[in-house]
């Protein structure tokens, strides 16, 4: 299993290098520091949200409300700034607001046992609506110039925000791949009952994933708001599609239990690079969307078919000797559910 995933991530990495190399060689202005900064900044919110979504998908759940949480938090930032609150106070408030929205998702999904797909499609609409309630149609600008550079400035070609993304990515990598909680995520995704029998606190873990997701979405909203110097209710509208695309393209199974942080990070970089190359090459927005869409389908199709082929090959010879496993044949010594 590990080898196969590695292979998908290798393919991704190669693709990513190819796209970047193509850009550097054949597209004017691609390899310049300004453009690289732009490329990295452009997908920083997607990266943050994807790191939040990955562990949720690993447990077999989903959170489609991430971009709406971002929108709400951005609107809240604007409203509070308009109201004259100092930015230093707004930041913690907005982060708490994000966590609260995540908590609402968590309660509906974990406590009431509702399907996360339905719940977060619902809150996708709900939170976006609340964003308009909070701020209306307008935009709030004029955020303090002391903080704006945090979201726009770079050291050389490396934006501060990208450093934040890398730090969050490393934290995600450590948690997902090297801690007991990380092991539990995979266990829940592949066999929730077994995880419960093993003393893994499934509900508590799922709850906290949604809280983290809300918090990260709030963080992404601050980045977004400062980056564009604009707080609007429709900030990040539709961004959840890019986030889901990055997670799936990264080789994460939508059914849970498979995927790596490295894969997701590579996928985000690939998507950012591809969009940038197409943008510089004057490819229209529609065509860009078509290409990203196709890439996504291929990314889901290839690992799935590889896995299917591998399983067929493995199961065919194994089917014979496991006759003693099969419930329907009652043996004199083996008891089955019905006599």
């Amino acid at each position: 299993m590990r080898d196969r995933l590695l292979r998908w991530e290798t393919i991704l990495l190669v693709l990513c290098v190819l796209v970047l190399a193509y850009g550097a060689i054949s597209t004017d202005g691609f390899a310049e520091a300004d453009n690289i900064s732009f490329l990295l900044l452009d997908y920083s919110e997607v990266a943050l949200l994807a790191f939040a979504l990955l562990p949720i998908v690993l447990t077999g759940e989903i959170d489609l409300s991430v971009a709406s949480v971002l929108g709400f938090c951005s609107a809240l930032t604007g409203a509070l700034w308009n109201g004259g609150m100092p930015f230093e106070t707004i930041v913690p408030l907005v982060l708490v607001a994000g966590v609260v929205l995540g908590f609402i998702n968590a309660v509906l999904i974990v406590r009431f046992g509702l399907p996360s797909l339905a719940v977060t499609i619902g809150t996708l609409g709900l939170y976006r609506g609340l964003a308009y309630v909070v701020l209306g149609d307008g935009a709030v600008t004029g955020f303090p110039s002391t903080y704006r550079p945090l979201a726009t400035a770079s050291i050389g070609f490396l934006p501060y925000v990208t450093i934040l993304v890398i730090v969050i990515g490393i934290i995600a990598m450590v948690v997902v791949h090297y801690t007991p909680v990380g092991r539990a995520l995979y266990a829940i995704g592949l066999g929730e009952q077994t995880a419960r029998f093993s003393g893994i606190r499934v509900d508590r873990i799922k709850m906290s994933l949604y809280l983290v997701s809300g918090g990260l979405a709030a963080l992404a909203s601050l980045v977004f708001t400062l980056r564009y110097n604009s707080a609007r209710a429709d900030n990040g509208n539709g961004l959840e599609l890019a986030v889901v695309a990055a997670v799936l393209l990264g080789g994460v199974s939508i059914f849970g239990g498979r995927g790596t942080v490295f894969g997701v990070a590579t996928a985000v970089l690939l998507m950012a690079g591809l969009r940038n190359v197409l943008f510089l090459g004057d490819v229209s927005n529609e065509i860009q969307n078509v290409i990203t869409g196709l890439l996504l389908i291929v990314s889901v199709l290839v690992p799935a078919s590889v896995r299917l082929l591998a399983r067929r090959r493995r199961e065919r010879p194994a089917a014979e000797p496991t006759l003693d496993e099969e419930e329907p044949c009652p043996t004199p010594t083996v008891s089955s559910q019905r006599s």
Partner: peptide
């Protein structure tokens, strides 16, 4: 369904109840 996670390796199954 309750004892093992069939897709996980043997060692990871063994450690599952005592990850701490």
């Amino acid at each position: 369904e309750q004892g093992l996670i069939l897709e996980l390796p043997i060692d990871r199954n063994t450690s599952l109840a005592q990850l701490g």
